[in-house]
């Protein structure tokens, strides 16, 4: 069953078709990779799916419900989380506060309730400890290094208990030891039922985690298949070389 389905997504910037009629899906329970050369339109596809950018055409269906063009909080509230390729931490807020923002619910009682509940704090601190940044919990997020910001973003997405997480280059700028830990974590979460769509240039990560790979080039889906199939396909290599 498809948890996420996009059909004919199209988005132009000026004369440039960043996403050009892309259709693909993410199976419930899977880790799916979205790869392709720089400028293929992967991040723009994420922006459309999460509601950050409105598409010129196409539909986004999450868990059977159309969310095309809805405000980002709609997708998030339905269980679709995302991270940004270039991190967008809330720099003046503390690391812990960044973790707590996704716990804010829409109902008045929650809004007027205390900023941090004990269970939320413990959960946030556990996740931060996992990422090795718990000792920085009370520092403004702007003091974190780039790799730490990537980790913070990944961990804060988890605070909302998403069913599907879109990760935009989660390993970019993160040291190899942590990449290993992040992969473990993704596998664990996936084992407990969370689905992932991952944009990643690190092929080791893609091959180890994903059960399905979608390849994009020039805004279109070039092909999709199992990691082994995609690895052997010469069109993929050609697409990456064509970029140079």
């Amino acid at each position: 069953m498809s948890l996420l389905k996009v059909e004919d997504l199209t988005k132009s910037y000026g004369g440039l078709r960043a996403v050009d009629g892309a259709s693909f899906g993410v199976q419930q329970g899977s880790v799916t990779a979205l790869i392709g050369p720089n400028g293929a339109g992967k991040t723009t596809a994420f922006d459309i799916i999460s509601g950050v950018v409105e598409p010129d055409a196409g539909v986004v269906i999450f868990d059977g419900e159309e969310i095309t063009g809805a405000m980002p909080h709609v997708a998030t509230r339905q269980g679709l989380g995302r991270t940004f390729q270039i991190t967008r931490e809330l720099g003046d807020l503390t690391v812990l506060e960044n973790m707590l923002v996704p716990t804010i619910k829409a109902d008045t009682r929650s809004l007027l309730g205390p900023k941090v509940r004990r269970d939320e704090r413990d959960r946030a601190m556990d996740l931060l400890a996992f990422a090795g940044i718990d000792k920085l919990a009370l520092e403004p997020a702007k003091r974190l290094s780039y790799g730490q910001r990537k980790l913070l973003e990944l961990m804060s997405v988890m605070m909302a208990d998403p069913r599907l997480v879109l990760l935009d280059e989660p390993a970019g700028g993160v040291n190899p030891v942590l990449i290993e830990k992040i992969m473990d974590r993704i596998e664990t979460l996936n084992g407990s039922g969370v689905s992932f769509l991952i944009v990643e240039h690190n092929m080791e990560v893609v091959m180890r985690l994903s059960s399905w790979v979608i390849v994009m080039a020039h805004g279109k889906v070039l092909l999709e298949g199992t990691p082994a199939e995609v690895q052997q396909d010469e069109r993929v290599l050609a697409a990456y070389l064509g970029e140079a």
Binding site: M71, P72, H73, F84, R88, V101, I104, A106, L112, P114
Partner: peptide
Amino acid sequence: RIAHSKLGLALRAIAQDEVKAEVAGIDTRR
């Protein structure tokens, strides 16, 4: 009260980066 509530946290997130606040699940307009 606002400063010490989740509403206050949401408002500060909005002040920092509205897109990020939205993606984190906050109905920023409301």
